[in-house]
Design a protein around this nucleic acid. Structure first.
Lengths: 153, 153
DNA sequence: CTTAACCTTTACGTCAACGTTAATGTGTGC
DNA sequence: GCACACATTAACGTTGACGTAAAGGTTAAG
């Protein structure tokens, strides 16, 4: 169970404001299964929970940083959130061999994701270094120029 | 000048094979100005240089890692390759004040790019740590299960 | 009880980043 | 010199990720 269950519910526009996404995008994410369909009011209005907002923020973050398609993101996030289920639903249930098989499956996926992340990290770090070097060069250049510019009232 | 000028030229299919892109994509990148139009044979076949291939590989890498649009990539790469020009074309030409202005412009762009890269790096590193923790948990789980599985002929 | 500001679904529009086909020209091994 | 594999441009098609407009239901304020 989550630690302090937050009962607050938000309508779509509030969620849009908080996440920076549009209402259309929220409905779209629900449509393609990236975000679970939230509960509804009697009048059929969507009611998002704090957890929904958190997931949406995570989605934005990963979309930004990993540049995955929404389909890939769906898998990636599903994976991230599968943690609890493995602990509870699964941990005390099936026979040990079945549990090992499931563990191996989850493990393989996580390793794939790690490879992906590490690859991007390598490129990004190299790019970062290149940018820092460039900025340092600019700084030296600037110094060179201003050094040879003596007169200024 | 480059160090050992490589004269080898490649036709589109060879470049496609080497980069993993399609021929269509190569023409498309040329069309939108992401890749400079290569030279042609008498029969109007494209002839790519080793430098073109290198740039294409860099394009793929950055597209993968940064998840930018092709338009953004165009700017980003143009920036990366602007280094030489700043050294040669520009360094000894205009008046010092103009040079400082240009330096500032280039500097600002590089700093923007650095911010971008750093933001993605932060998310990726956090994600990486989370993945490692997950894998460690799996490992512990596995150990727990196999420990409590004594009998096996 | 009405009205304005929300919400709903449905459906067509759009833009980037290509894929695919067609009609045509080129270069090469026999 | 003739297949046949490879190239060209032009043009239309597709997919993902939404935008936008239409036609209506819902809810809070006066």
């Amino acid at each position: 169970m989550t630690t302090h269950l937050d009962e607050s519910l938000y309508r779509i526009e509030q969620v849009a404001a908080r996440t920076g996404l549009t209402k259309r995008t929220l409905r779209y994410y629900e449509e393609i299964g990236l975000l679970a369909a939230p509960s509804r009011t009697d009048g059929n209005y969507r009611l998002y929970t704090e957890a929904d907002v958190a997931r949406l923020e995570r989605i934005c973050q990963l979309k930004e940083a990993l540049g995955l398609t929404l389909a890939e993101l769906t898998d990636f996030i599903a994976m991230e959130e599968a943690r609890d289920e493995i602990r509870t639903t699964f941990a005390e249930s099936a026979d040990p061999h079945e549990r090992l098989v499931q563990l191996d499956r989850a493990d393989a996926i996580a390793q794939q994701q790690l490879v992906l992340v590490d690859k991007k990290l390598a490129t990004l770090q190299a790019t970062r270094v290149a940018l820092l070097e460039r900025l340092a060069r600019y700084e030296r250049h600037r110094a060179d120029i201003t050094d040879h510019l003596p007169a200024q009232p």
